[in-house]
Structure formats: C-alpha cells, structure tokens
Amino acid sequence: MKKYTFILILILINSVLSAQEEAKISLHSSGKIYLVVGVLITIFIGIVAFLIYLERKLNSLEEQINNDE
C-alpha cells in the first residue's frame, strides 16, 4: 500500500513538473509566469514532504501500539 502511494505521488510530481516544462516553453518569452508556477510547486512539494514525514512517524507509532497490545 505504502509503495503504491509513493509511486502515485512520484507520478503526480512528475506530471506537474512536465506541465511546468510545457508552461516554460510557451510563456518564457512573454511574462515569466513559470516562475510563479515553480514557486507554488516548490511550496506544495514542501508541504507534501512534511505530510510524508508525519505519516511515516505515525506509521511507526501505530506499529508500536499494535505490537505492545
């Protein structure tokens, strides 16, 4: 389950990044809007990284509780 979620997240990030690449090509000459997209994606990835970190910690806590019971 964990593995699939991870792969799913990877695919998501990848698709977003490739969308950014496309945006770069069409908008580069005009307005540098891709920079805003890049910054927002960076923040989003940061929040996702926090969620993954918290989830892993929660997993180990759950394991601990289940084992001790």
Partner: peptide
C-alpha cells in the same frame, strides 16, 4: 521544526525566482 521547513522553502523558492530573474 516547522520554522526550519519554512526557511528551507524560503531558500528554495527564492532560488527558483532568482534563477529566472
């Protein structure tokens, strides 16, 4: 910990912005 996360994000987003400008 969250403060450090925000600082890292500030650096990274700044980096992206600096690259383009």
């Amino acid at each position: 910990a969250i403060g450090v996360l925000l600082g890292v994000l500030g650096c990274l987003t700044g980096s992206v912005w600096a690259k383009g400008t």
